[in-house]
Amino acid sequence: MIDEQIYRRFNHTVAACFVIYFLFPQEIFSLSRSWLIVLFWLIVITIEILRFQKRIEIIGLRDYEEKRVAGFVWFASGSCLLLGLYEMDLIPQSFVIGTIIMAAYTDPLIGESSKKWGEKIGIVSGLTCSFVIYQIIIGGYFYPLIGSVIAVAVEKPKIKWFDDDFAMQIFPILVMCILYSYGIGPDLINEGILIKEGI
């Protein structure tokens, strides 16, 4: 038997690899790479439909996910939305990379820390983790501070029809983008472009 708890955490952290998208060439088989986002999302939705129809069994899901949209669908939807908005030039690249990696690591870390050492330590470790990731990717202190506080704040409420895997990506980036667009926040290093072109 596989330790489902660790297995679930590992599945969550591997989602950080979504950022490999930025290394893809702009065109793949003369099609824009944006189509990959749509294709990937459709595959995820198909898997979820098959799961609901009980044609496939996915291990590592929580009991309450049996009759509602699973966490992996929420996470993939959030990431696909961010990548799509980036392709529309609506979000700086560094925000997208930082947010996807942050959401992939911070959520399981909060869960694990809260379980072992209590809720307060969970919040502190979540704040530290998200701040460090944002700082490494975006740089400076303003956006990492704002982003990490919002990410941890939206992780806590448990709403049936809205998952924290989605919220932890959408809300921090939304606020950071508003602050950046209206000139309230500082300018980004290289205008937020980390990866200029794919391999």
Binding site: I6, R9, F10, H12, T13, V14, A16, C17, V19, I101, A104, Y105, P108, I133, I136, I137
Partner: peptide, 9 residues
Amino acid sequence: LLILGNAIP
């Protein structure tokens, strides 16, 4: 980040 974050679990 990818290596460290995934190595932990």
